[in-house]
């Protein structure tokens, strides 16, 4: 999966418009080898945006019937920040069971894993993988895909935030330590040398680099260094 994951992340990274991002999210279906992928975000302005592989007829029905008001996935996820297997949600209300039955009739899989994300300033999003599978197959898949799901879902959300036109927003600012760490790596120092220079442990250095990578919307450390240089955040 890792090669496919790299390709998917590259596509997400190069998405320069919401249309391109939508296309990149749609193609994550093949990356995870599942029936459906859904990314649904609520901006801090309250505006909604999403990318979804469900049948358009089902999306229209969902909107027309205002299913989000009773959808256990929405009700559970939009407040939280831990992944939820759909099976663990409360489907006992009749409206929820109707929703599930109608969804399945429209080609939605019986299994789902949704990861809610909290962004800056009250922004939030939910990233979902959906498939048709037996319970044991799904449990094995979910454990296997967990780390990649965490990475990809947050990456998609950061790309969406960046496309919102908030370049150099406070949540993207690097701390002095993060800037130092990238500067030393850009100058060719090893992690051990960089940590020694900054008088911190390699463990802490790794956290600074990971935080900088995330804030810069970079795929990896090399990409983060290049990105920081091109933005003039570090100079070597």
């Amino acid at each position: 999966m890792s090669r496919k994951l790299d390709d998917a992340l590259e596509r997400l990274a190069s998405a320069a418009s919401f249309d391109a991002l939508e296309g990149a999210v749609t193609s994550l279906r093949d990356t995870f080898e599942v029936e459906h992928v859904v990314y649904h975000a609520v901006r801090s302005t309250g505006e909604r945006w999403g990318a979804v592989t469900y049948d358009p007829g089902w999306v229209q029905t969902y909107i027309d019937e205002n299913f989000q008001a009773i959808d256990p996935v929405v009700l559970n996820c939009f407040r939280r920040f831990t992944p939820a297997d759909w099976k663990t949600l409360d489907w006992s209300p009749r409206a929820a069971r109707t929703l599930l039955a109608e969804g399945i009739a429209h080609g939605i899989g019986n299994q789902g894993l949704s990861l809610p994300i909290r962004g800056p300033n009250g922004q939030f999003a939910v990233f979902t993988l959906n498939d048709r599978a037996r319970d044991d197959e799904w449990a094995a898949f979910a454990r296997e895909a967990f780390d990649d799901l965490l990475l990809v879902a947050h990456y998609v959300n950061e790309r969406a935030l960046a496309l919102d036109g908030t370049q150099n927003a406070p949540h993207q600012m690097l701390s002095p330590r993060e800037t130092d760490a990238l500067t030393l790596l850009a100058a060719g120092r090893s992690r051990a040398q960089a940590a020694e220079h900054l008088r911190i442990s390699e463990n802490t250095l790794r956290v600074y680099i990971e935080s900088a990578r995330f804030k810069l919307g970079a795929l990896n450390t090399v990409h983060a260094v290049a990105n920081a240089m091109s933005r003039g955040l570090i100079c070597v």
């Binding site: 965490l150 701390s175 002095p176 993060e178 956290v207 990971e210 935080s211 995330f214 804030k215």
Partner: peptide, 8 residues
């Protein structure tokens, strides 16, 4: 500019 990361 505090640390921001899905892993923290």
């Amino acid at each position: 500019a505090p640390i921001r990361s899905p892993l923290v």
